[in-house]
Amino acid sequence: DYYKILGIPSGANEDEIKKAYRKMALKYHPDKNKEPNAEEKFKEIAEAYDVLSDPKKRGLYD
């Protein structure tokens, strides 16, 4: 669930989505986080943001 990945409610607005994305992206960026699964988690976060930040894609997802 993209909302769960970003840690936001399904009714989140654009600003909340952007803030959550930035926070999670910094936390899991492969250059900052050396955990083995950090890169995979970072890709999931980027995919979630891509879908939820685009009103058309978000509409299809919801």
Rank of each mutant, 00 (worst) to 15 (best):
residue 20 A to V: 05
residue 37 N to Q: 12
residue 52 L to H: 01
residue 32 K to A: 04
residue 45 I to G: 03
residue 60 L to P: 12
residue 40 E to R: 14
residue 9 P to R: 05
residue 32 K to M: 01
residue 52 L to T: 02
residue 42 F to C: 08
residue 14 E to T: 08
residue 36 P to K: 11
residue 19 K to F: 12
residue 9 P to G: 07
residue 37 N to H: 07
residue 6 L to Y: 00
residue 60 L to W: 07
residue 53 S to L: 15
residue 41 K to H: 00
residue 2 Y to W: 13
residue 2 Y to M: 04
residue 33 N to R: 13
residue 6 L to K: 00
residue 30 P to E: 08
residue 2 Y to N: 04
residue 20 A to C: 05
residue 42 F to S: 10
residue 62 D to W: 10
residue 11 G to Y: 05
residue 21 Y to C: 03
residue 37 N to M: 14
residue 29 H to S: 14
residue 48 A to H: 00
residue 20 A to R: 03
residue 31 D to E: 15
residue 31 D to Y: 12
residue 17 I to K: 01
residue 55 P to T: 05
residue 43 K to Q: 09
residue 34 K to Q: 15
residue 62 D to Q: 07
residue 1 D to A: 07
residue 35 E to D: 08
residue 34 K to A: 10
residue 38 A to C: 14
residue 61 Y to H: 05
residue 17 I to R: 01
residue 37 N to W: 05
residue 46 A to R: 11
residue 28 Y to F: 12
residue 4 K to R: 07
residue 34 K to I: 02
residue 10 S to D: 13
residue 24 M to R: 07
residue 35 E to P: 14
residue 17 I to F: 00
residue 41 K to G: 12
residue 1 D to S: 09
residue 55 P to M: 06
residue 13 N to E: 08
residue 37 N to G: 12
residue 31 D to H: 10
residue 36 P to Y: 02
residue 16 E to W: 04
residue 21 Y to F: 03
residue 15 D to M: 04
residue 49 Y to F: 15
residue 47 E to R: 10
residue 56 K to H: 04
residue 43 K to A: 15
residue 9 P to Y: 07
residue 28 Y to W: 12
residue 32 K to P: 05
residue 42 F to Y: 09
residue 11 G to H: 08
residue 52 L to Q: 01
residue 43 K to V: 13
residue 1 D to L: 01
residue 44 E to P: 11
residue 17 I to D: 00
residue 24 M to H: 03
residue 9 P to L: 07
residue 51 V to K: 15
residue 27 K to S: 11
residue 47 E to N: 02
residue 14 E to C: 05
residue 24 M to S: 09
residue 21 Y to R: 04
residue 2 Y to C: 03
residue 51 V to D: 03
residue 45 I to D: 01
residue 43 K to H: 15
residue 61 Y to T: 10
residue 7 G to D: 09
residue 24 M to D: 01
residue 45 I to R: 01
residue 33 N to P: 13
residue 31 D to V: 11
residue 29 H to K: 12
residue 4 K to E: 02
residue 15 D to I: 04
residue 43 K to T: 13
residue 30 P to V: 13
residue 22 R to C: 13
residue 39 E to W: 11
residue 28 Y to C: 07
residue 29 H to T: 06
residue 7 G to L: 03
residue 59 G to C: 07
residue 7 G to N: 07
residue 56 K to W: 03
residue 24 M to C: 07
residue 39 E to V: 12
residue 53 S to W: 01
residue 12 A to W: 00
residue 17 I to H: 00
residue 47 E to P: 00
residue 12 A to K: 01
residue 22 R to V: 15
residue 43 K to L: 13
residue 38 A to G: 14
residue 6 L to T: 02
residue 13 N to V: 07
residue 34 K to W: 02
